[in-house]
Write a protein that binds this DNA or RNA. Structure first.
Length: 273
DNA sequence: CCAGTATCCTGCAGGC
DNA sequence: TGCCTGCAGGATACTG
């Protein structure tokens, strides 16, 4: 599900819903996720602490607790966080249940188990390898100045560069595809073969599409929802993602499919050059 | 260093 | 109807 707009929507929903609540118990269910720390350890660690705040970094969520410590969560491809009454039926593929003091559960559901949940003691955050490797936050103010120069210094296709979390953290396949179409740039064009001027346009469109998607609560294609079960409404705004074979909204040329970095990309051979 | 591929896992759509 | 294949919003270890 989750690229930056979806994770940001979850973050903001959780921030207003669970800050101030304390953790009664944490229970691991079924099999562990691929990179889920031992649930009993998380339980012993988190029990009795109060949720202090919810942050986002790239596609990662960070639940800050007090006494200090952080639960790091990544939703992978199919992960969802659900905030439900404690007696609500437990969905299959529920890996972690956080029992809160107001009678609700925060549940981590992830059928494909590509996500992660990991406890970070104070100070460990800066050492965590997956966090440390992350590049710029795409909505930060200096990105329009810096990112075009970073891309211009690389030889990879722009689609690959947009998906590389070490350069810019939070863009995934949907928004990379949309931003390239909006900017009128061919996804296979290489960074060093693209003028800084055009790269500025691309970065502008990345920021625009991310901001618009955050406003719409993200994009629901299949199973993404907010913790309270609401769907993101940005799907109706998608111009090319998932529309291979349909006419380009700008010039009516039939949209084509291209695989770059193992991911499919819809693009218009006429207006993306 | 770079780019491309395989891999983790389940669910679902489409072809036969 | 059922079986098979390939693909899906991601990250990373590996290969050449």
């Amino acid at each position: 599900m989750p690229e930056l707009p979806e994770v940001e929507t979850v973050r903001s929903a959780l921030a207003s819903a669970i800050v101030g609540r304390s953790v009664v118990a944490v229970e691991g269910r079924r099999v562990q996720m691929r990179r889920l720390l031992d649930p009993p350890v998380i339980n012993r660690t988190m029990r009795g602490r109060t949720v202090d705040g919810v942050r986002r970094r790239g596609k990662f969520l960070l639940l800050d607790l007090d006494p200090p410590g952080t639960l790091l969560i990544h939703l992978g491809m199919s992960g969802r966080l659900l905030l439900v009454a404690a007696d609500e039926e437990v969905l299959s593929h529920t890996h972690l249940v956080v029992d809160l003091d107001d009678g609700r559960h925060l549940r981590l559901v992830d059928p494909r188990r590509f996500g992660l949940a990991r406890w970070l003691d104070p100070g460990e955050e800066s050492e965590d390898p997956s966090l440390a490797a992350l590049g710029m936050e795409p909505l930060d103010g200096d990105v329009p100045r810096l990112l075009p120069l970073v891309f211009h210094a690389r030889r990879s296709p722009l689609k690959s560069l947009l998906l590389d979390q070490r350069l810019v953290a939070g863009v995934g396949n949907i928004y990379a595809t949309e931003a390239l179409w909006r900017a009128g740039i061919r996804p296979s064009r290489r960074g060093h073969q693209t003028s800084v001027e055009r790269l500025r346009r691309l970065v502008t469109e990345v920021q625009a599409v991310l901001r618009e998607a955050v406003e719409q609560g993200g994009t629901t294609i299949r199973d993404y929802s907010t913790p309270s079960g609401d769907f993101g409404s940005f799907a109706v705004m998608l111009q090319v993602y998932g529309k291979v074979g349909l006419p380009c909204p700008r010039c009516c040329t039939r949209l084509r499919d291209l695989r770059i970095a193992g991911r499919s990309t819809a693009w218009c051979p006429h207006c993306q050059t």
